[in-house]
């Protein structure tokens, strides 16, 4: 059984768009900045001068409870670990990019510039976790906009902050129920669609519907095969019967004609 041990709490009211997390991620994973696994959503400048405001929040893989990318991946390069981390096996991936469409949070990116290109996706800094550390992005964030810890603790913290400062946040923890729930929670002073997060209101993971259909396929296929065989035999038999009947009928007349 998957445990969903870890979680993030990302607080858009703290993010100052310094992009230190992007740098940390690119250093940690030894990839160029354009291939980092974390990016920034922002609202753009809002309001009228002099009351201007702008909010931002970093986003990376949400490590969904029921991940659509895992259910979609052609070759099983995306898997969910026992601790609930959605990991990516870059030795398997064929670069079909189905996961990019499957992910309801529009997270995975692709190495568009490479000759042999792979998917770009956060693996929750598994190597650092194994050593008892924090993910690089969370460890680096100067304003603690990205917090990392146990999933249930992060969720509680999210609700606590909203309760203590109801005028500061919209009353919603993004990621708790979206698309079947995730391990990354967001709280924000502005509605999430303004920040650029996909908001559909769907609380069931697309993976659920996918399984519903793909698991039915073998049954349907067996039905088609049996049905086809049945039709073939039925028509064949009927044709044989008809032919026999016709032959019996026709014989005397034919003879007459021949003579």
């Amino acid at each position: 059984m998957t445990e969903h041990k870890y979680g993030f709490l990302i607080d858009a009211s703290c993010c100052i768009d310094c992009r230190a997390c992007l740098v940390a991620c690119s250093v940690e994973n030894n990839v160029p900045m354009k291939n980092t696994r974390i990016w920034i959503h922002d609202t753009g400048v809002m309001g009228e001068y002099p009351n201007l405001s702008r909010y931002s929040a970093p986003f990376h893989c949400m490590h969904c409870v029921d991940p659509s990318c895992v259910s979609a991946c052609t070759v099983g390069a995306l898997q969910q670990s026992r601790e609930g981390i959605v990991i990516y096996d870059q030795d398997r991936c064929i670069g079909c990019r189905y996961c990019m469409y499957a992910c309801p949070f529009e997270v995975p990116n692709f190495e568009w510039q490479e000759r042999l290109a792979l998917i770009i996706k956060c693996d929750l800094c598994t190597a650092r976790l194994d050593e008892g550390g924090q993910p690089a992005c969370a460890a680096t964030c100067p304003t603690r906009a990205i917090q990392f810890g146990r999933r249930d603790e992060m969720l509680n913290l999210a609700y606590k902050r909203i309760q203590e400062n109801p005028q500061r946040y919209v009353a919603h923890v993004y990621g708790e129920h979206e698309n079947g729930g995730t391990s990354t929670f967001y709280i924000s002073p502005v509605p999430f669609e303004q920040l650029g997060f996909p908001v559909t209101g769907q609380t069931e993971s697309p993976a659920h519907f996918n399984r519903l259909v793909t698991h039915g396929t073998p049954t349907v296929a067996a039905g088609v095969a049996i049905g086809m065989a049945g039709i073939y035999l039925a028509i064949k038999r009927q044709a044989a019967d008809n032919a026999a009947a016709a032959a019996e009928h026709a014989r005397p007349e034919h003879k007459a004609e021949e003579e």
């Binding site: 259910s71 979609a72 052609t74 070759v75 991936c93 670069g95 692709f110």
Partner: peptide
């Protein structure tokens, strides 16, 4: 395919939930 050199991977790495598989 991004990794066209691995087009044959679908033969050896199954994911039965995947429509593309």
């Amino acid at each position: 395919l991004g990794r066209w050199d691995r087009f044959w991977h679908f033969l050896v790495y199954p994911n039965i939930n995947s429509a593309l598989f």
